[in-house]
């Protein structure tokens, strides 16, 4: 129950939330570069992170153009504090086992694939154009993560055990993607935004198909208590932002 209408997201805040998902996921992924299991995977993860960063930039540029006064993409990425970030907690969680990263990427890419597929038909032409571009990229990410999850899940007993463990750890954080309580219903009714709840069925159907083929068991639903879309994050986000924002904040106004 919302007490004021200010508590629900405007169009700019909607674009920022989608951008924050992409930026934070991108930053977590690049931590793998030079540490991935194979050199080809360094390149793959670098490319996926770059796609996500590009999507975040387009969304920030657009969100910043909607506010008064306007804000730049750098204002939004580097000069907001943790509580102003609106990403889901799933993407900020610490890296660990490689299987964790691939399970998380599979979930994120499956979600973004369905989201951008629908957002490409938004009545907002800029959001539609960004989504039409992004949907092709995240489809590729989803396929990459799917191939890894199949290989690890249906691999050796050890890779199966670790991938199942990763799945158990990440599964409670999945349902936040489908929670639309933070979003103004008018944005969905006007056809600007996609109702997060409408993505749950197709995303879970895709994930179940992959898990089944990978001989992994879907964990019982026990959702974590999360409010990333309202700016309440896990401890992990602050550490991530410290590294991400350090250079820009140490040298305000610098360009490179």
């Amino acid at each position: 129950m919302r007490s004021t209408c200010e508590a629900v997201a405007t169009e700019a805040e909607y674009a920022v939330a989608l951008a924050d998902d992409a930026l934070v996921a991108s930053q977590r992924l690049v931590e793998w570069v030079a540490r991935a299991p194979q050199i080809e995977e360094d390149v793959a993860i670098g490319n996926i992170a770059l796609d996500l960063l590009g999507q975040a930039r387009l969304l920030y540029q657009y969100a910043g153009s909607l506010t008064d006064p306007p804000r730049t993409e750098d204002d939004l990425a580097y000069f907001r504090d943790e509580r102003a970030f609106r990403n889901v907690c799933l993407v900020e969680r610490e890296n660990g086992d490689f299987a964790v990263t691939m399970v998380r990427l599979l979930v994120l890419a499956a979600y973004q694939r369905e989201l951008y597929d629908r957002l490409a038909r938004s009545v907002d032409p800029t959001l539609a154009a960004i989504a039409a571009k992004a949907v092709k990229e995240v489809a590729y990410h989803r396929d990459h993560a799917r191939q890894w999850v199949l290989r690890l899940g249906d691999g050796t007993p050890e890779s199966h055990r670790r991938t199942q463990t990763a799945l158990e750890a990440e599964w409670p954080w999945v349902s936040e993607l489908f929670d639309g309580g933070w979003l103004a219903p008018a944005l969905v009714e006007r056809g600007v935004a996609v109702a997060p709840a409408s993505l749950e069925e197709p995303v879970l159907a895709f994930l179940r198909e992959v898990l089944d083929e990978a001989t992994l068991a879907e964990p019982d639903p026990r959702p974590a208590v999360t409010a990333g879309r309202e700016g309440r994050h896990t401890e992990a986000l602050g550490h991530l932002l410290t590294e991400l924002q350090h250079l820009a904040r140490s040298h305000p106004g610098a360009s490179w």
Partner: peptide, 15 residues
Amino acid sequence: RLAGAGTSTTSRAAV
């Protein structure tokens, strides 16, 4: 031959 956008959401041939 992108089978992604606008087709079956559970399609494996998404790329």
